[in-house]
Design a binder for these strands. Structure first.
Lengths: 186, 186
DNA sequence: TCTACGTTGTACCGATCAGTACATAACCCG
DNA sequence: CGGGTTATGTACTGATCGGTACAACGTAGA
């Protein structure tokens, strides 16, 4: 029975949840210590640059997850349609059927965007480009593929807002179903 | 030349911009005094309950604007298509072609939602219901009208997120054009 | 002019903010 | 068993947080 197998990597998902729920400004150090169970000593040992570094690490973690689980399959899958279907499955899973909010979307809306402008910008542009690539391989013209990709990514983000505003995860799941249908009708 | 025609009503739009840019948690009293030019004395004279009351008044103001400028026309306009077109024009104007963010959407994402749960919930439900009503009068079945309305409102919110993430207002305007097109193809 | 009221600036409150310092403790390797 | 590194709790910093108290101000009506 090991005492505390707490590694830096273990707290990253917890930090993600905190930033999602409170936003960057609202995520106080006290909320972070409470949720992670780590004192300030440990926190600043793992993340010497404080809150800024914590958020950056989380953003990086999210970007990595989407790159391997969503973007790469969209770009590289032999069957483009399968890659897209896989995206929707991954998205529903990642956002806990609409109960979880998009960290990057949260950061994008308020002044936090300025602090993490590059990360926020590249997350969404990578997503739309990867999806557009899959749609092109499904036969859509370049322009139409890019437009549809933007609509779908925006639709996902908006559905998260709407589902949370109504406290109704089912709304999100239904919206994903319809967006998926739209990518099939080519 | 009157000295200071500052009335309570004059500061509400300013408060709106502050909450939009910083979110509720990030909108500090010092930011508010700076932006409005009003000291704490005046601020707490006009809004005795402090930040909470300020945000509530702003939410109310926004809800009123949308009710009269968007929802009512959607519901009551003889020509449903004209009501919908009017909505898109009003939306592009209100959100400054995507340069401005949705206050209610911002509040919906983080824990601020709990504080203003009722206001946030009713804003979006009023919007989707009003739009669904117009779509029904355009000939869509009840269910299809409601689904399309949810897609459109979510699409608007998502487009705001995306446009801001890319610092590209044109993205928002193009997305509105396409959503409008979708409401025409019945 | 005098008074009454709406408005304002300023000083102050305790609480909390992010971040630092540092002594101690737990751990790993020899 | 050492000894060195890693991790952690605690106490502290100055700044800022939201909010209150209150005296002084401006103006309007009598």
């Amino acid at each position: 029975m090991t005492r505390k197998p707490v590694e830096r990597g273990d707290v990253i998902p917890l930090l993600g949840e905190i930033f999602r729920e409170h936003g960057y400004a609202g995520a106080s150090l006290s909320a972070i210590t409470e949720r992670t169970g780590l004192g300030k000593g440990s926190l600043y040992h793992f993340f010497p640059d404080g809150k800024d570094e914590m958020a950056r690490v989380v953003l990086d973690d999210v970007a990595d997850w989407f790159e391997t689980q969503v973007f790469a399959p969209l770009r590289d899958s032999e069957d483009a349609a399968a890659g897209i279907d896989h995206m929707f499955r991954a998205v529903v899973q990642f956002f806990h059927s609409g109960r979880r909010v998009c960290l990057v979307g949260t950061f994008a809306l308020d002044e936090t965007r300025d602090r993490f402008a590059v990360e926020v910008q590249s997350y969404f542009s990578a997503w739309t480009r990867a999806l557009a690539s899959a749609l092109r391989r499904r036969g859509l013209k370049t322009r139409h593929a890019r437009e549809t990709a933007e609509d779908v990514v925006a639709g996902i983000q908006g559905a998260l807002v709407l589902a949370r505003s109504q406290d109704d995860p089912a709304l999100f799941v239904r919206a994903m179903k319809r967006l998926q249908q739209r990518t099939r009708a080519v």
